[in-house]
C-alpha cells in the first residue's frame, strides 16, 4: 500500500515537472524568432530590397544551394547559412524580408528597440538586393526603399555599431552590355547601379533638407518628434556618394543567381516556369562559357564580415 502511494506521488511530481517543462518549451518556441535574435546577437544577415529583385532566389541559393522558381513573398524566410569564413564559427542566420511596399517595413523590427525585441546589434549585415537590369525604370522606388534602410541604419543608437550595408546589383547576367559578350557584366552592373542610386539619393537628400522648413505633423504626434526620413548625411558638403555616407560602410557588388533554365521540352508536356524571376529576355547561358558562381561576390563579402 505504501509502495503504491509512493509511486503515485513520484509520478505526480514527475508529471507536474514535465508539464511545467512543456509549458515553458511551448512558450519559448512561440517566441522563436524574437528570442533567437536575442540569443544569437550579431549573427543576422538581412536581405532587403524591392519586390522582384531576387531576394528569395538569393536566399534559396545560399541556404539550399539551388534556386527554384519564386514569386512575391508573403512572409519572411529565416534559415541558417554556413559562411566559408573561418571567423564565423556559428552559422549565420539569413533573413529574407518581403519587398512588397505594404510589408517591407518588417525590416525595421530588427532595428527598433521596442518591448519585445531588444535586438539592436543582432544584425550583422544588411544586403540590399536590387534588379540591375530594371533599375533604370524604377530607380526612384528603389531609391526610396534604400533610403528607408539607410535611415534605419543611421538612426541606430550610438551604442550599437551600424551593420555594414551591401548593395547587391542582382541579375547581372541579363544586363544588356555593349560588348555583347555572353559573360555577365558585373562591372557594368556595379557602375550603373552606383550612379543611378547615388543620383536618386542625392535628390532625396536635397528634398529632405529643403522640406525641413514645414513638415506636416502626424496625427497623435504630440511629442513633436521629428519623423522625416533623413539619414543621408554626408561627411562633406557636396553631393551624396556612398563613400561619403555618414551612417556606415556601403559596398556595392554585383552578381546573379544561377536559376534553373527551362529544360528542353521533352515528351508531351513541358515543365515550364522554371525561371525564378521576371526576365525581359531569356538569355540562355552558353554552355561553352565556363560556369561562374554568380553569388561568389556576395559570399566573399559575407566572409569578410567580422
Amino acid at each position: 500500500m505504501d509502495e503504491l502511494k509512493r509511486v503515485d506521488t513520484y509520478s505526480l511530481i514527475l508529471g507536474s515537472v514535465l508539464l511545467a517543462c512543456v509549458l515553458v518549451a511551448g512558450e519559448t518556441s512561440r517566441l522563436e524568432i524574437v528570442d533567437s535574435r536575442r540569443a544569437k546577437s550579431g549573427s543576422i544577415v538581412l536581405l532587403v530590397g524591392p519586390s522582384d529583385g531576387g531576394k528569395t532566389a538569393i536566399f534559396s541559393s545560399l541556404v539550399y544551394n539551388h534556386a527554384p522558381p519564386t514569386h512575391t513573398s508573403l512572409q519572411q524566410n529565416v534559415a541558417f547559412f554556413r559562411s566559408p569564413s573561418p571567423f564565423h564559427r556559428k552559422p549565420l542566420q539569413v533573413v529574407d524580408i518581403p519587398g512588397h511596399p505594404r510589408i517591407r517595413g518588417q525590416f525595421t523590427d530588427f532595428f527598433q528597440e521596442n518591448g519585445k525585441s531588444k535586438n539592436i546589434g543582432g544584425v550583422k549585415a544588411v544586403i540590399f538586393v536590387c534588379d540591375a537590369a530594371a533599375l533604370t525604370r524604377n530607380a526612384s522606388t528603389v531609391a526610396e526603399h534604400l533610403h528607408l534602410v539607410m535611415h534605419a541604419i543611421s538612426n541606430l543608437p550610438p551604442s550599437a555599431t551600424p551593420p555594414p550595408l551591401l548593395v547587391f546589383a542582382n541579375k547581372a547576367d541579363v544586363l544588356t552590355s555593349a560588348s555583347k559578350s555572353k559573360t555577365p557584366n558585373t562591372a557594368l552592373a556595379v557602375t550603373r547601379t552606383t550612379t543611378i542610386l547615388e543620383r536618386e539619393l542625392e535628390k532625396r537628400r536635397l528634398n529632405s533638407i529643403k522640406s525641413n522648413t514645414a513638415v506636416l505633423g502626424e496625427l497623435g504626434d504630440e511629442g513633436g518628434e521629428d519623423d522625416t526620413v533623413g539619414g543621408l548625411d554626408v561627411t562633406e558638403g557636396d553631393a551624396f556618394t556612398f563613400d561619403k555616407w555618414d551612417g556606415g560602410v556601403v559596398t556595392i557588388r554585383s552578381g546573379w543567381v544561377d536559376i534553373q533554365r527551362p529544360r528542353k521540352a521533352h515528351g508531351g508536356h513541358d515543365t515550364a516556369s522554371e525561371d525564378d524571376e521576371p526576365k525581359e529576355k531569356d538569355t540562355v547561358v552558353d554552355p561553352t562559357v565556363p560556369k561562374k558562381d554568380g553569388l561568389a561576390e556576395l559570399v566573399d563579402w559575407i566572409a569578410t564580415l567580422r
Binding site: 528569395t56 527554384p68 519564386t70 524566410n77 515550364a272 525561371d275 521576371p278 526576365k279
Partner: peptide, 28 residues
C-alpha cells in the same frame, strides 16, 4: 502552382506556351 508563402515555388505547371512565359514574368 504550389508554393510556400515565403515565395518559393515548390511545383508549377503551365499548360500553354503563353501561360508559361507569363508565369515567369513579373505580372504572372
Amino acid at each position: 502552382t504550389i508554393s510556400h508563402k515565403g515565395g518559393l515555388v515548390l511545383w508549377s505547371r503551365s499548360f500553354t506556351p503563353t501561360a508559361a512565359t507569363l508565369s515567369r514574368s513579373n505580372a504572372s
